[in-house]
Amino acid sequence: MTKVSVAKEDVAASGDLVVLKSVNKHFGALHVLQDIDLTIARGEVVVVIGPSGSGKSTLCRAINRLETIDSGAIAIDGKPLPAEGKELARLRADVGMVFQSFNLFAHKTVLENVMLGQIKVRKADKKKAEEKARGLLDRVGVANQADKYPAQLSGGQQQRVAIARALAMDPKVMLFDEPTSALDPEMINEVLEVMQQLARDGMTMIVVTHEMGFARSAANRVVFMADGKIVEEAVPDQFFSNPRSDRAKDFLSKILHH
């Protein structure tokens, strides 16, 4: 009796926002996600790193069901991920997503990109949506580009607009799928700075990235993936200075030594 109530309190008090339990996924013969267990608490910033093909992007995309999973369970804010339809759309609205290739709506202006979800999904009125969009564009530093089309912006600017577009939905958690991998080197920092600021503001974030500097400075926890498995989880300092697994040691030696 006592035991049961304690267990219940544990779940209630933990405040876990994203929970993955024994998640498996195959691409044909390739087992891309193997028994993934991962829990992300409210306000936590988790950085997922690992070599190419390790399943990090798939993991990220599975959390808002852009990739379906074969078995296991994913819950966001205590609700299991619905299979399809309106329920799924409602849940996706609460999960912000930033893509490697920006994916701004090419036929709409920057401002319209940030307003669209507010109007069509949140049913906000146009004036309020515009006000909020302009505020967010100002926050990510591209307010003066509001009336341009995405193709007229630099990669860094486009990615910051994409972040504003996701923030406009007031998401509970933000997913970043290699947000700086398609950027020229001099534009990476302007995007990372926006993400750092978000992390400081207490946003719950799951970030798939190769930016080890960002992982060190902004992450509460580093998750290291290889061959479809989570090999190691640790706080950044411990992970980078004293990795436990050979796979992580090998990976870090390849990327940190020049």
Partner: peptide, 22 residues
């Protein structure tokens, strides 16, 4: 590009909205 529809789904648009708006 498939990313256009993915981004639209990611902000919570329904299938019909993704098709007609994006």
């Amino acid at each position: 590009p498939v990313g256009q529809a993915e981004a639209a789904r990611a902000i919570g648009l329904s299938f019909t909205q993704v098709l007609w708006l994006i």
